[in-house]
Design a protein around this nucleic acid. Structure first.
Length: 462
RNA sequence: GGCCCCGUCGUCUAGCGGUUAGGAUCCAUGGUUUUCAUCCAUGUCACAGGAGUUCAAUUCUCCUCGGGGUCACCA
């Protein structure tokens, strides 16, 4: 059984990069009929907050990424970590280090001055004398001093590190007893049954340390997949300073979960030439072997295109639901089908769609000057009058075709082109030169509102 | 700086020794549309550089250059 995880530290909102690794983990678990579990890494009490945890959970809920089982909170597992620390101490695989912070700093400065790599010198590794007074020791793990540590990575291949290059006896428990990250990650992943670890490749260089812990504790290694970073336009790691990286901001901007997920799954992963993936297709087709090795730049052109695509293919009933989040309530509007059919092809976002609908539904209070100049020349007023007269005596116009017939009659009787009626009518109804088909607009508005707008325009421009 | 990773159109990517280097997006043009948008068609644009290996390299190897990540009693 494949078990994957997402393990955020609750220091802020869920961001785009985190979401993508979470999505990959989720898909890989689901493809294999396995579990996707959540662990909140809230050991840094100074920086963590409940609000951040809630925000992350809320984002997952919006996107429909459900985790399996209970959420694990590292802050509640101190006794577990303590047990393993004691075990390593007892087995002689870890030891107490009494080096003071000052001495450690001194050591580093000397090493830097000599252009050496900064690392702990192993002073207390085999210490059996009397410990110095007044110093709370940290616990360090005995790391191998030489030899290669190979990370067998499902994305990057075998990555080999030399112990002497990167390892020292790193701290697994601080002076106050609190365990450190690389230690607890290994324990939690093992205890939670996680056997496939998908995470950002900024963790690749941490992995040898975690392997040291796995080995010391006798835990089997999971399979690692280190996915490349997402960079900003400047080519740097995407950070909170890069603007819209809060996942929930995409909801506010009017993106659909489907579009965002589809966009993200194609960032660093592909399946041939396919661009559009339903959630079912993602679950079916995703495989970490198809994750590419190089970082990608976060550019949202394609997200807009995908969002427009999904809006176009979303059933109107569903759109009505979604649009309530953008202050547009169409539930009782009898022409909502016509309205949404006319508008969903022209909106990049749900927010756009709501705005577009409001524009049509609200009687124009001003007219675009350029449009007026272009449309209201020649006999435009006369054309509008003629159309208005026909409309006022028309029996119960209802569908776009009813209005279209009326327009055709005017065009034929006055022997004019369609543009001669279309342009002034458009400006009268919408206040500008662009918009959906006029027959649809009039059907949406109904006869009374249409008449009102025509009359208003004639008054304003004759 | 040490260690590690990466390098195909502006962007996301396909390619897994032999291709006119493909798709998508963006941009441009044309068509459709009374308008705008959609949609359709067409077009512009890429293998970082240099050595090898090979009959043949975008593809394999090495070097250079470039970019990124990481080096805590943060996670």
């Amino acid at each position: 059984m494949v078990v994957t995880r997402f393990a955020p530290s609750p220091t802020g909102y869920l961001h785009i990069g985190g979401l993508r690794t979470a999505l990959f983990s989720y898909l890989w678990a689901k493809k294999n009929g396995g579990n996707f579990v959540l662990r909140i890494e809230d050991t840094d009490k100074a920086r963590n907050s409940q609000e951040a945890t809630d925000a992350i959970l809320k984002a997952f809920e919006w996107l429909g990424l459900e985790h399996d089982g209970d959420i694990t909170y590292q802050s509640q597992r101190d006794d577990i970590y303590a047990k393993y620390i004691k075990q390593l101490l007892d087995e002689g695989k870890a030891y107490k280090c009494y080096m003071s912070k000052e001495e450690l700093t001194q050591l580093r400065e000397t090493q830097m001055a000599n252009k050496e790599r900064t690392k702990y010198n192993g002073k207390y590794r085999d210490f059996d004398g009397t410990p110095p007074e007044g110093i709370e020791p940290v616990i360090r793990i005995k790391a191998p001093l030489t030899g290669a540590i190979v990370v067998e990575d499902g994305v990057k291949g075998n990555v080999s590190f030399q112990a002497e290059d990167i390892l020292d006896d790193f701290v697994i428990a601080r002076a106050d007893g609190a365990p450190t990250y690389n230690f607890v990650v290994a324990i939690d992943d093992h205890l939670m049954g996680i056997n496939e670890v998908i995470r950002g490749d900024d963790h690749l260089s941490n992995t040898p340390k975690q392997i040291v812990v796995y080995n010391a504790l006798g835990f089997p290694l999971p399979t690692f997949y280190h996915v490349p970073m997402i960079h900003n336009a400047a080519g740097k790691k995407l950070s909170k300073r890069d603007g819209a990286t809060d996942v929930m901001a995409y909801k506010e901007m009017g993106y659909t979960p489907q579009a965002l997920l589809n966009f993200l799954v194609r960032l660093g992963w592909s399946h041939g030439d396919q661009e559009i993936f339903s959630m079912d297709e993602m679950k079916d087709l995703f495989h970490p072997k198809d994750i590419n090795k190089s970082a990608s730049i976060y550019a949202t052109d394609k997200l807009d295109w995908l969002n427009a695509h999904y809006i176009k293919s979303t059933p109107n009933a569903e759109l009505v639901e979604l649009l309530t989040a953008y202050d547009l309530v169409l539930t009782s509007h009898d022409k909502k089908e016509i309205l949404l059919d006319a508008l969903k092809e022209r909106a990049k976002t749900l927010k756009d769609l709501a705005a577009l609908a409001k524009e049509i539904l609200e009687t124009p209070t001003s007219y675009d000057a350029k449009a007026v100049k272009k449309a209201f020349k020649g006999n435009a007023i006369e054309v509008l009058n003629t159309f208005g007269a026909k409309l006022s005596v028309c029996e119960n116009p209802h569908l776009p075709t009813d209005y279209h017939t009326l327009m055709e009659e005017v065009v034929n009787e006055m022997e004019i082109g369609f543009g001669k009626i279309g342009q002034p009518l458009r400006v009268a109804l919408l206040g500008k030169m662009s918009g959906p088909g006029l027959d649809s607009v009039m059907a949406i508005l109904g006869r009374d509102e249409t008449m009102l707008r025509i009359t208003n325009a004639i008054t304003a421009h004759s």
